[in-house]
């Protein structure tokens, strides 16, 4: 897609979402914010996946972001929405840049398992701290916005608008990254690390960059989730939470920066539907959907969009520009 079109689409989509927000019922506003929050985390997971790296511990940064917001309000007395989110960003950036130094040496399943271990250690530490409510977590008061104290409804709406803007910015920046030499190098890394090295790019630098991006988006997502939930707990760092993020990344696909948003929305829909239809057997539905997608849509739901777009475009112009899509099948060796 040409750069200009993309910019227009993303601005239009963000504005549309913000406008729709004025007429959404309360539950849908909340659901949309939590979808955007989770999708932000998944964006990071997908960015890593495009480089062939799977983090089974993204809950670590999701939790760090949430606790940065929670602790900032509890101990530093920060109540401002932007201030708290900035805190989440800094927390993600700092912890990510430190742990990234360690993580960049790992690949494949070892990266997955190591990231899992780190997040479980955070879970353990938080579960031990009775001051922070242990596993019960603690409550976060609704934020103020630019010094103004708002009613609960208005605060929710402000968070909603902020979430839409933040998502728009992340998608825009993410697209720029993926289209940069560094972004393309990431995909090359997925195909063959040795060849990338021969080209004169250090794989560790690529992975470090990706890891940083993923830590920041995850802690932003966690911070946003904390603000909208009004309550946080260590279970955000539990491995099953990280598993859910990978699940969603696969569901949406990794071929486009916006795919995680579609994936998260579909996931939340499936889960809610499954919970209502079969409160005793909803896990069967989730499991079947997961396997079904891996077998029949190995590139995720987004592949439906892109193949549709290909069809439309091949109708109007002769040369279809193929979006590089990461097929999750194992690359040739």
């Amino acid at each position: 897609m040409p750069e200009k079109n993309f910019n227009i689409t993303i601005i239009a989509a963000t504005l549309l979402l913000i406008t729709v927000g004025f007429i959404l019922p309360g539950w849908l506003t909340f659901l949309t914010i939590s979808i955007l929050a989770k999708a932000l985390v998944v964006v990071g997971v997908a960015v890593l996946m495009r480089g062939g790296i799977v983090s089974f511990g993204q809950g670590l940064y999701y939790c760090i972001g949430a606790y940065a917001v929670g602790l900032g309000g509890k101990f530093l007395g920060i109540t401002d929405l932007l201030g708290l989110m900035f805190l989440a960003l800094v927390a993600g950036l700092v912890s990510g840049s430190l742990l990234g130094l360690l993580m960049k040496r790992y690949r494949e399943i070892f990266f997955a398992m190591f990231s899992l271990a780190l997040s479980m250690i955070l879970f353990g530490v938080l579960s031990k701290s009775q001051l922070l409510g242990s596993t019960d977590g603690f409550t976060i008061v609704k934020p103020t916005i630019l010094g103004a104290t708002l009613s609960t409804d208005n605060a929710n709406h402000a968070i909603y608008i902020f979430a839409c803007l933040l998502s728009g910015i992340v998608i825009w920046l993410g697209q720029r990254y993926l289209r940069s030499p560094m972004g393309f190098a990431g995909e090359a890394l997925r195909d063959n690390e040795v060849r990338v090295e021969y080209l004169g790019v250090a794989p560790e630098t690529i992975i470090y960059t990706k890891y940083l991006i993923a830590s920041v988006t995850a802690s932003l997502g966690g911070g946003l989730m904390a603000l909208t939930l009004g309550h946080i707990g260590p279970e955000m760092a539990y491995w099953s939470q990280s598993g859910e993020f990978i699940f969603i990344a696969l569901l949406g696909g990794t071929s486009h920066i916006a795919a995680p948003f579609v994936g998260t929305a579909v996931f939340e829909f499936i889960r809610t539907f499954a919970l209502e239809l079969a409160p005793n057997a909803w896990q069967i539905i989730l499991g079947v959907v997961l396997i079904f997608i891996i077998i029949f849509f190995p590139s995720g739901i987004w592949s439906l969009f892109s193949s549709l777009k290909e069809k439309l475009r091949s109708g109007e112009s002769g040369s279809p520009s193929k979006t590089p899509s990461v097929d999750l099948k194992k690359g040739d060796s």
Partner: peptide
Amino acid sequence: ILHGRDEVIMVLVTYGILLIFED
């Protein structure tokens, strides 16, 4: 059906199986 897929994909397939077995 899925032999030869990426290792991490297989983790997720078996995660799906785990969920199904749970219920």
